[in-house]
Design a protein around this nucleic acid. Sequence first.
DNA 1: GTGAAAGCGCTAACAG
DNA 2: CTGTTAGCGCTTTCAC
Lengths: 344, 344
Amino acid sequence: MPKKRTNDTVSSVDVARLAGVSQAAVSRTYTPGASISEKMRQKVLAAAEQLGYQPNIIARSLSGKATRLIGIVMVKIGDPFYARILAAFSRKLQEHGYWSLLLNVNDDLGLEEALPQALQYQVDGIVLTSATLSSPIAARCAAMGVPVVMFNRYSLEVAVNSVGCDHAQGARDLADFLLKGGHRRMAYIAGEENSSTNQERERGFTEGLAAAGQRLFARESGDYSYAAGFDATGRLLARPERPDAIFCANDWMAIGAIDQARQSGLKVPEDLSVVGFDDAAMAAWPRYSLTTINQPIDKLVMAAVEVLVNAIESPTEDRVIKLIPGRLVVRNSARLPVGHKKSA
Amino acid sequence: MPKKRTNDTVSSVDVARLAGVSQAAVSRTYTPGASISEKMRQKVLAAAEQLGYQPNIIARSLSGKATRLIGIVMVKIGDPFYARILAAFSRKLQEHGYWSLLLNVNDDLGLEEALPQALQYQVDGIVLTSATLSSPIAARCAAMGVPVVMFNRYSLEVAVNSVGCDHAQGARDLADFLLKGGHRRMAYIAGEENSSTNQERERGFTEGLAAAGQRLFARESGDYSYAAGFDATGRLLARPERPDAIFCANDWMAIGAIDQARQSGLKVPEDLSVVGFDDAAMAAWPRYSLTTINQPIDKLVMAAVEVLVNAIESPTEDRVIKLIPGRLVVRNSARLPVGHKKSA
DNA sequence: GTGAAAGCGCTAACAG
DNA sequence: CTGTTAGCGCTTTCAC
């Protein structure tokens, strides 16, 4: 039986009594714009201090104010890359005076039940990471006037804000880079097939090849994990004719690919070029020195938070979709185009 | 000017009106133990469905009920290891019907201001990860009747629950293992010097050595990062006499140490044994195959959540401190004791 | 069982 | 400026 909180909670009434003023005065003391004399303010503050009073945000929000709570819906919080995103979000939101209500979701099914929960907490806004919103749910958010921003996901059908990296463009840049490097047999190792991120990256890559009259030489499927990259590369290398370059849907798989290649006696990039996507921390390690696309997490998150905060603080019907370019980071896991000068 | 939420929020009154019953009836419908006829229940549910009604938890909590919100205070959310901990906490808490309010803190200073914020949200409990609570703050929590559990931190002075891995014991096991392996010149690469985790691990290790009449051969300092492990090992290897085993305060540094050793032309473990702590994901990679202590994250988190939930739901003055043993995971980065049989 | 009514702690008109 | 007075949406006696 969840006992009631040890009731000695001190409320504004207690403070008012001690200070010998009205309860409203206490409220005004904690309301930025309110008109109250400095003298009274001090009296209240003194009493509050003495009692250890803290305004109750919950009660405040009940009377029509914002909760300053943002629901962050996320899958795979434990994944290092997602963790960086989450860290950036919570920090950035805190800077704007918002707090994060974390919803750890397993799959798109979990989402459908998590979101109503968040809504129950009267969140002022919702960040959706790596999950796609269904129309009916989006409609409910809209009905409650709760702005939503999707991160690294887009949906043309559902009217919802979104901010993300331009995966297709990044993949196209990678294709160009490999083409210029003289590669002719390009393979792609896919991430989870139905993730939009994977689809965008593959689309961009094949488009890039197509622009030069080329096609994918081979294709394998993985699940974004190191092991998947390792194994898929094993299959690729077992072919009668080997690819001369592999684009992995993310860095983890690319790192697995490099390890596999080396274990198979191949030199990277002399015998095989490998490129990834994300620019995870490990991509910069000397051992891998992975050529990849940097997803500017801070920039992405900042943009997403700005979109959301803006939607909260000055509501509008307009919907914004923001695509932010990634940056090609040239390291040593892929053969360089002749005459290529690496930037610092 | 934070506009008021588009007011069309549907409340229990609306539902009551539609259903033609009293507002109290709809409240009872959503109160598990309440006495209400099945017939009325259905009427209410139907009306609620039609209106898209969801009880407002905020309002409910105002009238003396729990918020079912747990404040999770964390530093370095972006660190892969902490990310796993956070993921485990949010999942486990959700299983118990609690939600996580994430407080991203920079240092112990940030803590002091973050906690009052959490308290404003009337959290039912607080999880403190990798941060130590000061007495005054702990007192405030206690005054508000908000239970706290510290994770992987202990403090004898401050009366607060805590759950964590038995770092000292783990380190002692490591020392024993290395001693049995015939090592005689043991070095320690410290993590952040003032982190209690680091202190415990060092203490355990030196105690383990002392029990066999040995002392630390060398000591370097790092900050838990790959680079720090790499560099510190460089310094260690530059000595006139090299250590024959290195215990790094965590796995990341151990991995850096291995890379450094190899780059210096040493074989691991033939020329140098390296052991770490945590059992991070990468420790299992064939390239490193790191002998380390597994921190049973799920078990630790489960225990912490249980302690907290218990403290919330059946308040007591008792304070519990739980130390959970880590498990020695023998891989190939350290020379084995003669006759040692590896378990699967 | 069910409804009426009194708060929970705070904000926001509204009069002085 | 300051105090008074309604609520915000919900739970909970208390009668019926």
